[in-house]
Simulated scan of single mutants.
Amino acid sequence: MSTIFDAPPADDGGGRAEVPEGFLDTTPRARVAQVALGMNVAWFALYLVVLAAQDLVLPSVDDLAVWDARDRFWDVAEPIEIVLRLCTAVVFLVWLHRASKNAHVLSETKLQFTPGAAVGVWFAPCVNAWVPYQVVREIDRASAPEPSAVDTGLVAGWWACWIGSLIITRFVLAQGESVETTLVAGSFLAHLTAAVLAILVVERIRKNQLARATRDDIHGIAATFA
């Protein structure tokens, strides 16, 4: 549940700085999305550990029970990963929809993507290879203290890792059992990095929007995530 601001801080003139009408604090939704993304980070880190053990330790182990445990792990891991991904996608898009609404409230110019479109483009074939990045970049810029000067490197890095992880994963699946371990590890690492960067993107947008709405130290917050 989002929190609406009933008592914003006083402005420099001694009055009350009014929060723009329609603005809602995204902190609860952002935190849920970040927890889900953090679980992805932990899950893919576990994948990397298991993969390393599989290549470096298991070849010297003759105990069949250990090998059976390895196989059972991979059998169980796949459905868990699918559920985790679905849950993460849902909570991330719920946050993104609200963040897009806030961006429209805060922006001094008309934005290209409506809140509905900000979510819908993720489900459009081909379009979802590029347009979601434009959506998040637009929200990030509209939320920044100086939209024209915002550093888009963080958002670009997140999207590059996300698309890279999808491409590597598709290639890995196409190779089947003959795939190189380094490619599998690369896929896991790309997913992990994308999740870490997504957490930072969510936090920067959340803090900038909150600061702008409450007239807080928006420049100081922007510098923290530059």
Rank of each mutant, 00 (worst) to 15 (best):
V50Q: 00
A42C: 11
G120R: 07
L84N: 00
V61Y: 08
A129I: 10
R70M: 12
T224A: 13
P79F: 02
S60M: 13
L200V: 12
S165K: 06
R170K: 12
C161N: 06
I199W: 02
G157V: 06
E78R: 10
F92M: 10
E21H: 14
C126E: 03
A185H: 05
V179H: 06
I168R: 03
D62F: 05
L106Q: 04
V61L: 09
N40A: 11
T214K: 09
A30H: 04
P79T: 04
E146P: 03
C87W: 14
V131M: 10
K101R: 15
W159E: 06
F44Y: 11
F92R: 04
P125Y: 00
A53Q: 08
F5R: 05
V83R: 00
I167M: 12
A118S: 15
A65R: 11
T182R: 08
L154D: 09
V35Y: 13
E78G: 01
R16S: 04
D216F: 09
Q134P: 03
I163K: 04
T169F: 02
F23G: 04
L154M: 14
V35T: 08
V201P: 12
K207H: 11
L64D: 15
L183K: 11
G120S: 08
I4N: 09
D71I: 01
W67V: 09
I168D: 00
A103G: 04
D217T: 12
A10R: 12
V32T: 06
L51F: 09
V66I: 15
V155G: 10
W74G: 04
W158R: 12
I80L: 13
F5H: 13
P20W: 00
T152V: 15
L46S: 12
R204M: 12
Y47S: 01
W159A: 10
K101N: 04
A52C: 02
Q54C: 08
I168C: 09
A195L: 13
Q209D: 15
F225P: 03
V90L: 15
I205S: 13
P132D: 10
K207Y: 05
A7R: 05
R170E: 09
L24C: 00
D25R: 04
G164H: 06
N208T: 15
G38H: 02
S143N: 09
V94G: 08
L166M: 12
A223R: 03
D25I: 07
A160P: 14
F73A: 11
R98E: 14
A103L: 06
A45N: 00
D62V: 14
R137F: 01
L192E: 07
V201H: 12
V66C: 07
M1K: 11
G38N: 03
G157C: 14
C87E: 01
T3C: 03
F123D: 11
S187N: 11
P79G: 01
D25M: 13
A65M: 01
P79Y: 15
D25A: 15
V155K: 03
A42K: 00
V41I: 12
D68G: 07
L111G: 06
S100K: 03
A213S: 05
V83P: 00
F188M: 11
P125C: 12
Y47H: 08
W74T: 05
S143K: 06
L24S: 07
A10H: 02
T114C: 02
D11L: 01
T3Y: 08
F92P: 02
S100F: 02
A30E: 02
F123Y: 05
C87N: 06
P20Y: 10
V136C: 12
